[in-house]
Simulated assay, not measured.
Amino acid sequence: MWQETISIPGPYNFDLALDRLSLDPLHAVDLDSRTVKVPVANGSERQIATVKGTGSLEIPQFHITAEGSKEQTLSVLKEIFRWDVELRKIHDHFQSTDLKPIFDAHYGTPLVLDFDPFGSLLKCIIHQQLNLSFAYTLTQRFVHAYGIEKDGVWFYPTPDKVARLTVEEFRKLQFSGRKAEYVIGIAELAAEGKLDFASMRNQADAEIENSLIKIRGVGPWTVQNFLMFALGRPNLFPIADIGLQNALKKHYGLDQKPTIAEMEQLKEPWEPYLSYASLYLWRSIE
């Protein structure tokens, strides 16, 4: 067991980050103690890293307690929590845009990543065309049925294990037959090494999209959410997302959800930080 304290430049609103993480019942979050337990997989080894916020909005600090490789775990946590991203620069960018009130209200909220790229892609598939509450419930059923639990923290099942499941087993969890086939198909590709999540970190968004879009069940919405929440890419705006449409409707006081053409026009001033525009808009209605 080792411990480490990390300090980063502010702003960084760890409390709002924890609040969003707590929406997912699979996350071991304690809002009162400002902690989250993160599953860290290194090959067949599964370790848990506890991250506790000990600093403030403007002077962020985190106390980490974990086992296993210190260097590898710190690298994973840095990537997940985006400790290397200058949130002040992003905040300043939106001060001259229509989203200024939302960025002021959620000042310093980071784009925290999903804890596992394979799990992130599966979650994107599971969440397709479902309301958020049932999407989380369905994902939780799947992970509880086939994942691994360690000290109250859940790890997504491995690609090998998911690839061996049958559509009937998914149907018992209330998956549609088609969605079950999509999940199994992605797991088979990952198990065969045809989906290399590690190499994706060095690939351009377009290259990843061209690769993923060929997979059955993967559309633009799935690709964009994966790029955002598995790889932390900063300039994604999933226009087909109903939550974003509702957030824009609310923010601009529209009678109906904006059209695709209207959204394309609205988002222009928000580049190159469209992922943060998406995140803060979601936060405005969550």
Rank of each mutant, 00 (worst) to 15 (best):
G10R: 04
T97Q: 02
L31E: 05
F229G: 07
K257T: 15
P11Q: 05
T137I: 05
D151G: 09
Y12C: 09
D30A: 09
G185L: 00
S275A: 07
G177C: 04
D84H: 12
K100Q: 11
L121D: 08
V85N: 02
S75Y: 07
H251I: 01
L57P: 13
L74A: 10
Y273S: 02
H251Q: 10
N235R: 11
E169S: 12
H251K: 12
H251D: 04
A198Y: 01
Q224N: 10
L23Y: 15
V143Y: 13
L248F: 06
H251W: 02
L31M: 11
H91C: 03
A49K: 00
I126C: 13
P25Y: 03
L231A: 12
D84P: 04
G119S: 00
P272Y: 03
D92E: 12
A17Q: 08
P258S: 06
S22Y: 02
D84N: 12
M1Y: 05
I285M: 02
L130F: 08
W154G: 08
L254Q: 07
R88T: 14
P60S: 11
T137R: 13
Y146C: 08
E79D: 15
I126N: 15
V112H: 08
I242W: 00
S22P: 01
A66T: 07
G68I: 03
A191E: 10
Q174S: 15
S199W: 08
E168G: 10
R233S: 10
G177I: 07
H63Y: 12
R178Y: 00
N246K: 15
G217H: 04
V223R: 01
E169D: 05
A49F: 00
L18T: 11
P117C: 04
T35N: 14
E4D: 14
V223G: 07
H63R: 15
H144Q: 15
K78H: 10
G217A: 09
K89H: 02
G108R: 06
T97R: 02
F62E: 01
G193A: 09
H27P: 01
F170H: 11
S7M: 00
D30E: 11
P272H: 07
T35F: 10
I208W: 03
Y156M: 09
A247D: 09
L111C: 13
F115N: 13
Y280A: 10
T50F: 04
L165K: 10
V218R: 02
G53W: 13
I80Y: 05
I184Q: 06
Q140S: 14
E264H: 14
S211H: 14
R82G: 14
M228V: 03
S22L: 05
F237E: 09
R164G: 15
T65A: 14
L274S: 05
R88A: 12
R283S: 06
